[in-house]
Design a binder for these strands. Structure first.
Lengths: 339, 339
DNA sequence: TTGTACGCGTTATCAG
DNA sequence: CTGATAACGCGTACAA
């Protein structure tokens, strides 16, 4: 490994001059610049980023923590994040938790080790409790939560997201307006506040329409295709089969559509299905999926802007920044069948 | 930021002892251990990973470079990678190129800056030319290519993948055996050797069956849903419309299925469709997609094992490690319609 | 314009 | 078992 010393030796200058050549070339006389340049070319020298970051106390790196690569939803958010990162000269490193299996230790290491200048928690909840954080809250790098809803205990973290509760209410109300009264709900997991909020929205809408929720109409889909398929089969076998199913995300809605069609039922004539997220597949499903669209690219951009502000030391508070959602009606929903 | 010095001061020991407490606790007497432990708790100290990596010259980090988070194909490969990483105590950091937009500079920085102990190029080709690399080939960190096929110029990199050419030949031959002779092909991009290999396989199979490929039967899908939809429309409007379409990946096959159905044609009665990858959605599509399955988790595991071997200094050569693929027949393919 | 010399936080060596 | 001290590679006051 060739270091700055070697270059200095070959160019017959001091290491300080080489350093200046790299970071402030204009401070170096042209003749000297040439000498250094030749030495660098000759040795194939590249600055050791580790040493540099260490010295500078800043890395220009932002960590994005997300549950799973392979989830189409993150495509848009990441695009927004990258866009801002590029113009502000930050590098993005993604850390996959494989469905939140990161230990508290790993998290705390990530947060306190200063490897990155900031952290984005993308739809993944950090298990670090406020007590852990309280110690040197001031000195740790900024953290911001994107998309995921925040539990009260973590509410001192800033976040950027849609209002999941009212979005879910809107979706449910839409079904109710289509004359549905028997509406099932497939939630994600009970560890995800995000899908909990969506469940809450569903319940509120049912409640305010004075519609009962039968036992067995709310089932767990585990946020996966297979989980949702099982959940759907349960709903289809229910003695009082729902005429509409609301899935807490589009991934699960995809599994749901499949199971309904496998059971030789028609969508939306027999059963309406509504999803959440408006991933890129939603419109090419058969039938195209009615769903709640999130402005994912905008979420990514706003998250980054807010995070960078925090990194630069400007106070950004701890509020949730709420961005608008939109109900996108396609052909997977229709009027309730006549009884 | 509290450093090891502060802890040492408070515990009334030397910094060396604190360091030992962290890294080799068994070398520290119990009484001393307790003192240190208290001081650490009191200060909320955590080792500065930057300084540590810098000092050690090793980070325990492996970079995975991939084109896009949000691509379902990577789910399995990443699972395999994580599995091995965990048992060998490596951390995985993902770098998204957003479809290969990383500049050569960024790549070279990644490769030479020693931020990571090794690099996995996951279906993304590194623009660093061998000339760039030749300088200190010995000293740079190991790089391994996963899934992607390798251009001749990059063939000094080891890789783990399936044999894309023969897999594509197998898929094409299957269609031919079903009596299809008019077979279209939707390729990805011309910058992706992976989809080029698949195209080559298609051509070879057609050729050895003495079947002509009409002008306009091979169209670009850009590896995206929308690109594939456009490509499909072109094929459907072709004066000699193919009776089967082979898509270079499942993502594009999803768009293809949709367009065919939108044109009120039946699959597979009017047109058969075959994909590539066997992503998790393949079996819930309507109709379920015939495709080539890659053992993605195994690819991930093997890639990691080989990379770790290289990191540990054992020679791993530069050969491609070929893993078996499998044709999965579902209902999107059938016999060619009678003329 | 250039060089000297110090410090960043850690680990490793070696002497005690 | 513990402490003093020398690196690691780089950036930067400060001096020349």
């Amino acid at each position: 490994m060739v270091s700055i010393k070697e270059v200095a030796r070959i160019a017959n200058v001091s290491i300080a001059t080489v350093s200046r050549y790299i970071n402030n070339p204009e401070q170096v006389r042209e003749a000297t610049r040439n000498k250094v340049q030749i030495a660098i070319a000759e040795t194939g020298y590249a600055p050791n980023t580790l040493a540099r970051n260490f010295r500078r106390g800043k890395s220009g790196i932002i960590f994005v923590v997300l549950p799973s690569v392979g989830d189409p939803f993150f495509e848009g958010v990441m695009r927004g994040i990258h866009q801002v990162a590029e113009e502000q000269h930050y590098s993005i490193f993604i850390r996959e938790t494989q469905f939140n299996t990161l230990t508290a230790d790993e998290y705390s290491n990530m947060i306190f080790s200063k490897q990155a200048d900031g952290i984005i928690l993308l739809a993944s909840v950090c298990p670090i409790t406020p007590t852990n954080l309280s110690n040197d809250n001031k000195n740790r790098q900024p953290i911001i939560i994107s998309c995921e809803s925040v539990t009260p205990e973590l509410s001192h973290f800033p976040s950027v997201r849609i209002d999941n509760i009212s979005a879910a209410m809107e979706a449910t109300s839409y079904l109710i307006n289509q004359n549905h009264s028997d509406i099932g709900f497939i939630y994600g997991t009970h560890t995800s506040t995000l899908t909990q909020d969506r469940e809450r929205g569903y319940q509120r809408a049912m409640h305010s329409a004075k519609l009962p929720i039968a036992e067995g109409w709310v089932v767990e889909g585990g946020l996966t295709l297979d989980g949702a398929r099982k959940a759907t089969r349960k709903l289809l076998n229910h003695h009082q089969r729902p005429t509409a199913i609301f899935c807490a995300n589009d991934e699960m809605a995809m599994g749901c559509l499949h199971e309904i069609k496998s059971a030789k039922l028609s969508i939306p004539e027999d059963i309406s299905v509504i999803g959440f997220d408006d991933i890129r597949y939603a419109e090419i499903l058969d039938p195209p999926l009615t769903t709640i669209a999130q402005p994912s690219e905008e979420i990514g951009e706003r998250t980054m802007h807010r995070l960078i502000k925090a990194i630069e030391g400007r106070d950004i508070g701890a509020e949730a920044e709420i961005v608008p959602h939109k109900l996108v009606v396609r052909r997977s929903t229709g009027p309730a069948p006549k009884k």
